[in-house]
Amino acid sequence: MSLETVLQHVLAGISLGGAYALIAIGYTMVYGVLRLINFAHGEIFMIAGYLMIFSMASMPWQIAIPVVLIGTTLLGVFIERFAYSPLRSAPRMSIMISAIGVSYLLQNLATYLFTALPRGYPVIPFLKKVFQIGTISSSLVTFITPVITVVLVILLVQLITHTKIGMAMRAVSKDFETATLMGIQLNSVISATFAIGSFLAGVGSILYFTDRMSVNPFSGALPGLKCFVAAVLGGIGSIPGAMIGGFILGLGETFMVALGFSTFSDAFTFVILVLMLLFKPTGLFGEMEAEKV
């Protein structure tokens, strides 16, 4: 591989990783607060893709993008209210089954409503403009994805560390019961967590699918699982960790494909997961005294 191709792949990998990072943050935040792997997160991401297709059909992209982001946010909050909050005191396994159930339901619902055939993702003209830096050329979306990711992560970290709701989130993730005793409104904190996570999944979905060009009802499942792995890799509960994890996975996957191991690129992700859980369950940036996994 020449230097040029390597650089091209690095760029593609970072761009993919940026989208992964945005989804991974949703997992990491929800896990931090509820100790639940939100299996439906990948499906929220997929539904955001369909929302974009339908809103672009009737409005210009300047309006469609906010509509999609708001819709996705509401969907996430609604799912939490409907499927997770009634099970707050139930055994863990029930909540997990409920999460799997939501994911299964959304997949089947999407198959029913939009058929299993892939649908073309609308082209947002300015994102698709071909851009050139030195000898590397790519569409604008590839260049701005990592930038958007980093900016959003910085904003989110500010939110978590400096605002009241952020402080409440940290308190809930440290100790559920004590936080409630201190007068924190558990339900609104959890809703806010889902809202932020889903909003970022919406942004990630626009960036990811603009590059992939088509959506089908199952296109959320595998990226969803991979992003969970990214969250574990970075250390569950850590937002910058999820971002780094996303970038590592994105780069790893791109290079696996470039080297001709495309069938094993998914397996590679899970090998990383198992290795991480075995040797460093707290992840790269997780808190030291995190609970036993």
């Binding site: 100790r35 639940l36 792997i37 863990r92 396994m93 997990m96 699982l225 969970f228 792995v229 574990v232 998914d266 397996a267 992700t269 899970f270 090998v271 997961l273 198992v274 859980l277 369950p281 996994v293």
Partner: peptide
């Protein structure tokens, strides 16, 4: 529990 679920799911996929 939940890590086990994800890890077994991952193995099935592998």
């Amino acid at each position: 529990s939940d890590y086990l679920a994800i890890a077994t799911l991952g193995f099935a996929e592998i």
